[in-house]
C-alpha cells in the first residue's frame, strides 16, 4: 500500500490536514496496547524516538534516513501486562509504563544504563492505581485506592530512574479518574472524580483549594488539559459515558470555564464530528491546541481547539480500524495505531 493511498487529507474540513510520514510494523507484536514518543540521547545526538507497547514488552524505535525506523531496544515485562505508556513531558532517556491486570498495579521506569548499555527497570509505585500523569519538571502524580483510603502522591524522578522525593496531596473523598496540570499556574493541578467534580490542588502545600461540580449532563468527565486565563479556569474534558443530545449530538471533547472563586461553571465550546459522520468517542488525547480521538467507527478525528472545528478525519485503512491515537512530544505529529501492532506516523500541518 503506498503512502499516497493511505494518506487521508480532507482539506474541505479546515486549513490543516494529515499526511502520512511513515509506518512501523512490529512483526513480533499482535497485541498493541499503546504508542508514544520520547527524546533519546546517545553519542551526543538527541533524537525523537517512537515507543510501542504490547502486553509483554515495550520497544524504542530510532529514526533512520527516509522515514524508516529501527527497533533499538526492547524491555521485556513478562510478569504483569503493560497497560499504558505514561509520557514524562520534559524527560530524556527515560520511559515510564503502567502495568496491571484490570487496573494499574505498578508503575515502572525503563532505562538504558549509561555505564554498560544494559536495559534496566525501576519500580516506582505499587497499589491499586486509578490515575497517573507525567508532570513537567520530572514529576509523576498518581492516585491509588478509593474513597477514604485514596492516596495521591507526587514522585520526583532522578535521571538514573530512581525516585528523589515523594509528596502527598490531600485526597478528596471521591475516586480520581484523571489529572491535568494547569497551564499558566506553576503550582496548580486539577483532577476529575467519579462523582463528576473537578478538584484543584496547590502542589506546594498539597492542599485542596476547591471542588467544583462539572454538571449533571456530563457524567464521568475526564480532564485532558487545563489553563488559567482572565481569572477563569478553562478545562478540556471528554465524557466517554455521555448520552447523545439532540441539540449537539455526542461531542468528543468540550471546553468548560470554571470560576474557582465561586465554583460556578459554564460550557464554552464542544467538539463534534462534522455533519454526515457518526461514531462515539472511545479514547483520545489533547496536546496544545489540538485534540484527537478514536471513534467507535474505527475512524480518527482531529479538532483544532482554537478554530472550534474538526480539521481532519482518518477513516480505517486497508489494514483495519484505528484503535489508538497519540500526539508526539511535538504536537505536529500524530501516531495512529492498530490492534495488530502497526503504527502510522502522520504529519499534522
Amino acid at each position: 500500500t503506498t503512502a499516497e493511498q493511505l494518506a487521508v487529507a480532507l482539506s474541505d474540513l479546515g486549513d490543516r490536514s494529515l499526511h502520512l510520514a511513515s509506518k512501523l510494523k512490529n512483526p513480533s507484536s499482535s497485541c498493541a496496547v499503546d504508542v508514544s514518543t520520547v527524546w533519546w540521547e546517545s553519542a551526543g545526538c538527541t533524537e525523537l524516538c517512537i515507543l510501542t507497547a504490547c502486553e509483554t514488552s515495550v520497544s524504542l524505535w530510532k529514526p533512520l534516513a527516509s522515514s524508516q525506523w529501527r527497533k533499538a531496544y526492547t524491555w521485556h515485562l513478562a510478569e504483569i501486562p503493560v497497560i499504558q505508556i505514561v509520557p514524562l513531558p520534559d524527560v530524556c532517556n527515560l520511559v515510564c509504563v503502567a502495568l496491571g491486570e484490570l487496573e494499574i498495579g505498578e508503575i515502572r521506569l525503563l532505562l538504558c544504563s549509561s555505564e554498560d548499555g544494559s536495559l534496566k527497570q525501576s519500580l516506582m509505585r505499587t497499589g491499586n492505581i486509578k490515575a497517573v500523569l507525567g508532570l513537567t519538571n520530572r514529576r509523576l502524580v498518581s492516585s491509588s485506592g478509593a474513597l477514604q483510603d485514596q492516596q495521591i502522591e507526587i514522585i520526583s524522578v532522578l535521571e538514573a530512574g530512581r525516585s528523589k522525593e515523594r509528596q502527598s496531596l490531600m485526597p478528596p473523598e471521591e475516586t480520581i479518574l484523571a489529572f491535568a496540570e494547569v497551564e499558566g499556574i506553576r503550582d496548580a493541578l486539577v483532577g476529575t472524580t467519579a462523582m463528576n467534580n473537578l478538584v484543584i490542588w496547590n502542589l506546594k502545600t498539597g492542599q485542596i483549594l476547591k471542588k467544583m461540580h462539572v454538571g449533571y449532563s456530563y457524567p464521568a468527565s475526564i480532564c485532558h488539559r487545563a489553563y488559567s486565563d482572565s481569572g477563569l479556569l478553562f478545562v478540556v474534558l471528554s465524557h466517554p459515558h455521555a448520552k447523545e443530545n439532540e441539540s449537539c449530538g455526542n461531542p468528543a471533547f468540550r471546553v468548560r470555564a470554571f470560576n474557582p472563586r465561586t465554583a460556578r461553571s459554564t460550557g464554552v465550546m464542544f467538539f463534534s464530528l462534522p455533519p454526515g459522520h457518526s461514531g462515539r468517542y472511545l479514547e483520545g488525547e489533547v496536546k496544545g491546541g489540538s485534540a484527537a480521538a478514536v471513534l467507535t467507527s474505527g475512524t480518527i478525528a482531529v479538532w483544532d481547539l482554537f478554530l472550534g472545528q474538526c480539521t481532519a478525519l482518518l477513516p480505517p485503512n486497508t489494514d483495519g480500524k484505528w484503535s489508538l491515537v497519540r500526539w508526539s512530544v511535538t504536537d505536529s505529529c500524530l501516531l495512529a495505531g492498530q490492534k495488530d501492532g502497526s503504527v502510522y506516523m502522520y504529519h499534522y500541518s
Binding site: I185, D187, A188, I200, N202, T205, Q207, I208, L209, K210, S228, S230, G231, L232, L233, A257, N259, P260, R261, T262, R264, S265, T266, V268
Partner: peptide, 23 residues
C-alpha cells in the same frame, strides 16, 4: 460567558484560595 453567570472573577484566584486554605 458573562460575569453574572459565573459570579465575581478574580485574576489572583489561585493565591487567594491558597491563602484561605492555610490551616
Amino acid at each position: 460567558c458573562s460575569e453574572s453567570d459565573l459570579g465575581p472573577i478574580s485574576l489572583n484566584w489561585f493565591e487567594e484560595l491558597s491563602t484561605e486554605a492555610l490551616p
